[in-house]
């Protein structure tokens, strides 16, 4: 039962993470990524046998009990060590992404990536997030859906400064 619940939880977390990543907007992206890392960490947790037991720390008393007891009644410590490492790493990466998103936000005043911006402009999607505080740069006409990848389309220092000040 525990194993089934764990598997279900991992699945739900994966689904939610994937859904959030596919949404428009970078904050959702960050949240989705953290959900995905949690899902993987839980899956790792499930790889250890889920037994109740003493903490797997060998003190002087337990050392004398012998190897047989050591291996039967103790929880497997390795998945915890792996998860801790994975958490540390995902913490670092998530911090990095948040910093990038923040910088992006400061530069454009928008939660959207330029590619997404191009879609918004070209299709005039009524459901697109298009807040009024975001003034389009003068180069908005250049946001061709095929061209948006070109750096110079959005490396306009002057229009960026304008947007950033808005």
């Amino acid at each position: 039962m525990t194993a089934f619940m764990l598997a279900l939880l991992v699945g739900v977390l994966f689904a939610c993470g994937a859904y959030l990543i596919l949404q428009r907007g970078q904050i959702k992206l960050v949240l989705g990524l953290s959900l995905l890392t949690h899902a993987v960490n839980l899956a790792l947790f499930g790889t250890g046998t889920l037994t109740r037991g003493a903490p797997p720390i060998v003190s002087e008393e337990t050392e004398s009990l012998g190897a047989a007891i050591l291996f039967t009644s103790y929880a497997d410590p390795l998945p915890q060590a792996l998860i801790l490492t994975a958490i540390v790493i995902s913490f670092g990466v998530t911090a990095f992404i948040v910093a990038l998103v923040f910088r992006r936000d400061a530069l454009t005043g928008s939660d959207l990536l330029p590619g997404e911006l191009a879609a918004v402009i070209n299709t005039s999607d009524p459901f697109a997030e298009f807040s009024l505080r975001m003034k389009l740069p003068d180069a908005a006409d250049d946001y061709d859906i095929l061209q948006y990848e070109l750096d110079e389309v959005y490396d306009h220092p002057e229009s960026e400064a304008e947007v950033a000040h808005e």
């Binding site: 990543i21 970078q26 990095f96 992404i97 990038l100 530069l107 454009t108 990536l113 959005y154 960026e160």
Partner: peptide, 15 residues
């Protein structure tokens, strides 16, 4: 800005 755009895609997909 272009570096940050590329960086976000790179980080997310590689992660």
């Amino acid at each position: 800005p272009s570096q940050i755009n590329g960086g976000i895609r790179y980080v997310v997909l590689n992660l």
